[in-house]
Structure formats: structure tokens, C-alpha cells
Design a protein around this nucleic acid. Structure first.
Lengths: 201, 201, 201, 201
DNA sequence: CTTTAAACGAGACGGTACGTCGGGTCTTACA
DNA sequence: TGTAAGACCCGACGTACCGTCTCGTTTAAAG
């Protein structure tokens, strides 16, 4: 019997180490901030040699990007209506931007912007958000709730939504933390009201 | 005879050095990015001893914050109408977020967010934006274009505006860079259209 | 099977680096004097990172002490007579105090004296001299050339010998440098004449 | 009308400052040792600007040399006999090498030795010792206690004396500190016994 | 069962930047 | 012109971390 790609010789990677390293990376970042996020610290916390990290990632930045990507799970959303989907997305993001991993993702995305060049940059971090938004749009299209010609408006409106949530998470973090589920739902409804207004203009 | 506050003893600070240091800091940041922004490098570029920097700022982070604050000038806007003011603000921001200093300010603001605590954080960087937005609102109020009860909506709408522009600057930087003045004006008009719609709902 | 002490984990120390560092330290000291002896310079000259030095020594002073200790070799002396041994010691010291390492050792010994306290101080530098003198005494004792009761006189006489050579090396260095082997031997004989006189009083 | 040396224009030197600086220099050296002897500290302790120090001395080393020279007073010795003079000198030195200023002088003399060159070096520190020894010799000569041909022996014997006292002060400092006047006198007599033996050989 | 080969932990390696401190010079206002 | 104060440029200090390297050990497949 054939095995298309046989395992390479030598001792196999310790799959558990990946997890321990990723968790340690996020924990160190959370504990000491960007400046205090050190690979020495990650290795120590993960109980792992530095070489095991460098076998897997090229540098501390790549590790952080992958860690965020690995731990930031997008919800699976399909409520049956555009409005419902949007409320679900907004509710998710209201929480997400308050989490450690969610905010690290924001920092990475901002840091990754090259100010001087138009060179393509690693899009890993934002990809799952793009996917969620795209799916909502596709389902709304297939239900006939939106018109293919509104793609431009859709883009702008979702951008405004992200922006509002980002600014909110940045400037009013303490209040947002204190919200219970009902209040969060109301907050989401208010924002979606405006979005629907713009989309149905 | 009055001498409100006499000069302190000793050789006075070299005022020119402040400027050279600030320019060097921004230039180093621009040249080598966040990771490569080193105080040794700043001192070398400014032709200044490290101690002269540490006499003025506590650490490299404070220097960067102050440098951004010192070099990021807000426009003086008063067009006579809410719509005109908003278009002027948007046009300014469309440029601003593409500049080195403008984007460094964004990074600093994002980095300054404490994820774990609600402790007050240095607001220096965002203050001038807040001022500009506040002034537009006050003038619109005094002209009777808006209602004092709409303050909440105003807050949300401007947040959405900033967010749209931020996301745009982050995700579509290359295109934005290529715009000429007319295109930028059109872009601004489109966004303000949506904002006015929401404000006058 | 015995393995008295197994090697510790991790990459082993580079034994060659020790030598390079020690040589560099003495060379820097010789080149730039006490004031110009800098660890940065030592690291540069040895082609070594500063961390590799601080892994081995606590500070620049300890390095210098160890360097002197490592490079200052005492001769192996056993001529068969007290007079012969003393002449050998004196001849050695006449050279030794003119060498770089020999004189650095003197400076360290002098600097190490605590003027205000009687606390014990690192004796490393002087230990080998003490050993040589002690051995000469023991052999003379076993040959019956001296009396155990003369220990006090022996101590004083050898102290005077060291002192004479030290003062000579300090005040008349240029002349001493110019001596050839015969002259040095005569110089040694003259001093030992006096010492024998005192010992046999 | 003539004024032989007219006071120079401008503010006159503060005569008291010299003393305060010298005392501060020795005190700082005593307090923090060679490494901790800093001009900043001296200026602070003396209540003086650094520039006032640099107006008087070229660098911190010169200041220390002068400070030692200014504060190290030699005794005036004339007992009427060679033996008496020598005992007085030894008794003085037994104390002197235990004092702060006395030992600093030793360090400076040792440090000043150029290991690589025969260039003349500042002899200031040793000069007064040389003078005292010379005077004792001259008086002994004029009394007919020694022969002019013994100058070489005199040189060597005094060198041995200094050396014995130096080594003693270095290696056995604690014991020497504890001596009372009688014990010190006995110690001096013992050494002078040996010296006289060598001189009268 | 032995060999081979890679991953593992540990930690030393050469560098570089940190923030502090001291040296010797310079620039002020005052005496 | 001297003085006290203190800023100036420079460069060393000792620490921390980067990304690489070199060990001896462990693991699992191949021979």
C-alpha cells in the first residue's frame, strides 16, 4: 500500500509543543506588552528550547502572527437574514476586540502596514474577517436582499462598521467591558440600524 | 521690576537640539520601522549625545509620542457649513493617514490601549483630533444645523468616519496614494454623503 | 560505571574564548593603561560578544585579576641550596616586575588594599609568590640551612627583598630594562649577599 | 603710580575653593575608592562648579596628585644620630602608610609607572620622601657616621626599608593598625637594627 | 537489534540596544 | 575675569534579548 508522502526520517515534531508555544507567546504578549514580548520568555514559559521555536517559525514576529491566527476563531454565522447576520457579526466583534488575541490581531494589522511602499504584505491576520463579511454578502445576494450593484456601498458600510467598533474598543474600552449580553445586543442593533439605512438608501 | 520666572541657573537647553532630535526620531522610525527605531540611531542621526535626549525624555517611547504630537499639525477648518467642514476634515484625513507621522500616531494610539486594565492612558496623541471634531460640532450647533440631542449620533457617525478612513488607509493604501486632488475630493464627498444621511435621519 | 560529574546541559563553553579574552584584556590594559582599559575594547579585540565575557566574569576588575593570575607563571625553582634558590627567585623577579603582567599584578595588589576596613580581600594575585617563598623556606629547613626559630627573620628578610625589587622596578625601570643576563645575575648576587648576612646574623 | 603686580581684572579667585576641592577629592577617593572617585562627586561635595576645578587642574588625575602632595606632610627630623633619625623615619612611615592620603600616594606612584616607555613621569609624589632620606644621609655624613663611598649601600638599604614597610602595610594592615606607640617603637627598632647591620658591614 | 536521522532541552555564541553615569568642554547670569 | 550651575557630545558600563550554534539525549523508522 502506498503512502503518498511518507513521514520524513528522524524524530517527528512534537505536536503538543506547537500549542504550548502559541499559548506562551500570547500569554507573554498579554503579560508584558509588545516591548516585553521576548522569545526567551516564550521559550521559558512554554518549557521548550529556543531551537524548537526557530524550527517552526522564522522569527518572533511570524510566531505572533501565527499565534493570533491560530487562536482567533471566527463564529459560524447564518441566521437567515441580512439583518440577523449583521447583528451576529457586530455582537461577535464587540467581544472580540476586547479579548487579548483580538486586540493583538489589530496591533499586528496596523504594524504590518508599510508606509512607504505598496508592496504586498502578509494578509493572514485579516483574512478570516474578510471571509466572514464576504459570506454574509453572498448569502444576502442569494436571498435577493441586496443588489450586485451595491458591492461598493457594501464595502464602505462594512468598513464603517469595523471602524466604529475599533474606535469604540480603543476609546471606550472600560465601558464596553462592563456591558452585559442584553446591552451588547442593543448596542449591536443600534449600529446595524444605521448600516441598514445606508444599504437601503 | 518683574521677572515672572527667571531663567534657571546653568547653560540653557539648546532649543535647536529638540527639533533635530524630533526630526531624527521620526526619520529613524520611518526608515527602519518600529523594530529598528533605536535611540542610539536617533542620537547619531541628530548629531547629539544620548544624554541630551534622556535629559528631555524619559525613554524612547515618550520621545516618539512627543515627536508625533509636535509634528502632526491639524488644519484650521471653518467653511461656514457643516457639510463643508466635514468635507474639509475628511480630505485632510485622507492625506494625513498616508503620511509617516500620521500613521505613526495611529500605531501609538493602538499600542497605548491597555488590554487588561481601565487605567487612564496618555491621550496626547488623539487630543487634537478630538478638538477638531468638537469644534465642527460646536459651529454646527451655533448655526442651528444640528440639534443638541443628536450628540450621541454625532459621536457614532464621526467614529464611523474615522473608522472608514482608517480601514481604507490600511487596506487600500496604494490606491489612495495614487489619487489626485479631484479624486480625493470626490472620495470625501461620497463619505460625507453617507454621514449627512445618518445625521439627518 | 562512574561518571563523577556529567557535563551540564547546553552548549559547552568555548575554552578558546577564555584565552582570547584574557589575552585581549592584558593587551588592552597594556595599550591604553588603567583608564583606557574598557570591556568594550576587550570584547572587540577578542572578537567576542560582551555577553560571553559577562558569562565568565562578574565585572571588568575580576577579569583583570584572573587574567593576571592566569598569565603570571611562577618558575619552578630547586637549586639545592638556599643561596641558589634565592638568587633564582631574585633573578626571576627582576624580570617579572618589568613585564606587563607582572606590573599589572602589582597595581592590582596595591589597589586591592582596603584602607578603611580589615575585611579579608582577594589574595589570588599574591598567592603564587607566597607559595614560591614558602617552598624555598621549607627546602632550606629540610637541608638544615635555617633554624625553625628564624621564621620571623625569614619573613622580614623576604619582605625587604620584595620591597627592594619593587622600589627598584618603580624608580629605576629604564636602567633595569637595559641589563643583560650577566648584569642581572650580579644584581641578584648583590641583593642575596645582604639577605644571607641578615639570615645568618 | 606703579603697582608692582596689579590685581588682574575680573573676579578674584576664591582662595578657599582650593582647599575645599582638595579635601573633597581626598574624601571622595577615601569614600568610594579609585573607581568611585568622580569629579562630579568632588564638585558636589566641595560646593563648587566643575569649571572651577578645571580652571585649576587639567584633569582628575592631576587634582589627585596635587591633593596628595598638598596634604602629605613630612615630619621634620633631626635627632642627632643616624640611628635616631632612622627610627624616627620608620616610625613616621609606619603611621603614614596606614593613613588615607599616604596610601593614595602609594597607589598614584605605582599607577604612574609607565610599563612600556622610559619617558619621565611626574615625580611629585615621591619627592618629599626622597628629600627626607637625603637629609638623613647628609647629616650622617657631616657627623662622620657614614662614608661617602657607601652611597650605593645607603640607597639599597633605604629601598629595602621602604619595601619592608610597604609590604607590611599591604599584607598585614590590620595588625599594624592595632599597635600602640610602644609596640610601634619596638617594630621600628627591629627594622633599624637590620639596617644598621647592613650599613656597618 | 542496530543504525540513522531528525527533533528535543539547554544554554553559550557574536551582536546590538537599552538606560545610566562620568569625563572634559561650553555657555549662560551673576559677582 | 572668576564662579556656580548645568547642558553639551562622547563613550563605557552592565543587562537583556536576538537569532545562530553546538552539545548530549530522545524518539521512531529503516535496515
Amino acid at each position: 500500500m502506498d503512502r503518498p508522502e511518507s513521514r520524513p526520517a528522524g524524530r517527528p515534531r512534537d505536536a503538543d509543543a506547537d500549542d504550548r508555544i502559541i499559548d506562551a507567546a500570547l500569554a507573554e504578549y498579554a503579560a508584558h506588552g509588545h516591548a516585553g514580548y521576548s522569545l526567551n520568555g516564550v521559550a521559558r514559559r512554554a518549557g521548550v528550547g529556543k531551537s524548537s521555536i526557530y524550527l517552526r517559525w522564522a522569527d518572533k514576529e511570524s510566531l505572533l502572527v501565527d499565534a493570533v491566527h491560530a487562536r482567533a476563531e471566527a463564529p459560524w454565522i447564518d441566521t437567515g437574514s441580512l439583518r440577523g447576520d449583521l447583528e451576529a457579526v457586530v455582537t461577535w466583534l464587540l467581544r472580540h476586540f476586547l479579548t487579548e488575541v483580538g486586540w493583538v490581531a489589530v496591533r499586528i494589522a496596523i504594524d504590518g502596514v508599510q508606509t512607504d511602499t505598496s508592496a504586498p504584505r502578509p494578509e493572514k491576520v485579516g483574512a478570516q474577517h474578510a471571509q466572514v463579511i464576504h459570506d454574509v454578502w453572498e448569502r444576502a445576494l442569494s436571498r435577493g436582499e441586496v443588489d450586485p450593484g451595491d458591492a461598493g456601498t457594501w464595502l464602505r458600510v462594512t468598513r464603517m462598521m469595523y471602524g466604529d467598533l475599533l474606535m469604540n474598543a480603543m476609546l471606550d474600552r472600560a465601558r464596553l467591558r462592563g456591558l452585559d449580553d442584553d446591552e451588547r445586543a442593543r448596542e449591536a442593533r443600534d449600529l446595524v440600524d444605521l448600516m441598514m439605512l445606508l444599504l437601503q438608501r
